[in-house]
Design a protein around this nucleic acid. Structure first.
Lengths: 242, 242
DNA sequence: ATCGTGATTTGACCCAAATCAAAGTGACAT
DNA sequence: ATGTCACTTTGATTTGGGTCAAATCACGAT
């Protein structure tokens, strides 16, 4: 199941050092974190946490992609968030979550036991502030997603999804044309409030229109950024995810 | 336009005293707030704040209902949040919002200028904590709404909406059967990702099934709570808003 | 190489909700 | 009482995307 790695990387050379909850920690604070952290890895498809389960630890995503999802009585499900590297799982002052967390790809988490972590948060205002910023970013992303789920057509949903991945996958500030899809058509459907068949059809429709090309199942090449943005339905600079 | 009332009520007798951002303030802190607050009222339909506009003040909703909404290029809109009494507008560390805020009914806000308020937040950890709780509540509500927008049928959406209002409108812990709709069919449609015609038809379908009765346009009477919950599609205790 | 399995694409058909179009309601002003 | 205006209901029709079903593809295991 869960594999515990005995040797997490040093905070100072951690890939998410500058974006995660620890972004503004100084050397002393990092060494405290260093002492209380442990890595856990999960394989693609594994359930990481589930609704109602008491949270014994909180964590930052180091590598990979995890998803948050909610389920209706009859089994219909909707993803309600994607966790990319540097995103945070768990929240101060709550010991349950009301959704499931699943590893979408193989995932590495940097975990902290709750009690000592919460103590650190109470004593370190800028960590609390950083948590607040992360929560507000999630809230903004959730609201963009509400607009997508409530009002966008299937084509607009797919275009928005590709644009979002392109935006997030550029390492610095260069827009990449090659986008890696971190999930299957089924999972994409789940994220966008569609069925997998519609996802497939719309990918191919965008391809037929010369906006993207599909090299293999997990890679999209954006041929025409302007047309892609046009296809999202968003106005000028709206709809930006985080 | 905006009316400024010169005599806001005393914090100590404020109806949202125990739920708003000031919930855990002591007498001294309240008197600081007392000194920096002012009331503003808006008529139903008025725009309170809009996207991109710099935020000069933050506020708590005292009376009435306001809505947050986002718009696509061609004018389709989606509400992304409802603000009921005690909900908070504005956020530490951001000076713009990425949605419009509109008065749904007549609204009274308790406003604080940003600069002094942020100073207070920095100096008063429990206010920062309360803001965090409010943000996390909004995030949970947003996620419930994503499930609704992405996966629920029109009937389920209407049932969920009525159930949410019933839950929120009970003054203490008694479930009321009479629910006041704080908005028009058009606005409800906007909130639920539907058209106004569909909203009207589904209200009448629930009525025909004996689950609710519609006294007048703005009042719903819940005749059968169990059936209403059944109709939401939520499982046992899920889908609770805030 | 071949098989098996899960992911993806494609096609045919259907239905829930959108769209288009008209009436119906009720509160208020004249 | 009459007209106006904004909101709501109801009906007829269309349609985007869901559903069901059958290939096709890709890739690791044997």
């Amino acid at each position: 199941m869960t594999v515990l790695l005995d040797s997490p990387v040093k905070c100072s050379s951690c890939p998410i050092r500058h974006r995660a909850v620890c972004a503004r920690c100084d050397e002393d604070e990092l060494s405290i974190l260093e002492g209380m952290k442990s890595y856990r890895t999960f394989e693609a498809g594994q359930l990481i946490l589930w609704r109602g389960e008491p949270l014994t630890y909180v964590a930052s995503v180091v590598h990979g992609v995890a998803s948050l999802s909610k389920t209706l009585e009859d089994g219909r499900t909707q993803m309600v968030g994607l966790l990319l590297p540097s995103d945070f799982i768990g929240r101060p002052g709550r010991d349950e979550i009301e959704f499931d967390v699943t590893a979408t790809t193989d995932v590495t988490l940097c975990c902290f036991d709750r009690a000592p972590f919460e103590r650190l948060v109470d004593e370190t205002p800028h960590v609390a502030q950083r948590l607040m910023e992360l929560a507000l970013d999630e809230l903004d992303a959730a609201r963009d997603w509400m607009l997508l789920l409530g009002r966008k057509t299937a084509r607009e949903k797919i275009a928005t999804f590709i644009e979002m991945l392109a935006r997030r996958s550029h390492s610095e500030n260069v827009l990449t044309t090659k986008v890696v899809l971190p999930m299957t058509r089924d999972q994409i459907a789940n994220y966008l409030g569609l069925t997998l068949e519609t996802v497939s059809r719309q990918f191919n429709a965008l391809k037929k229109d010369g906006i993207i090309s599909l090299t293999d199942r997990r890679h999209v090449d954006v041929l025409d950024y302007a047309a892609l943005h046009e296809a999202t339905g968003d106005d000028a600079d709206g709809g930006v995810l985080s």
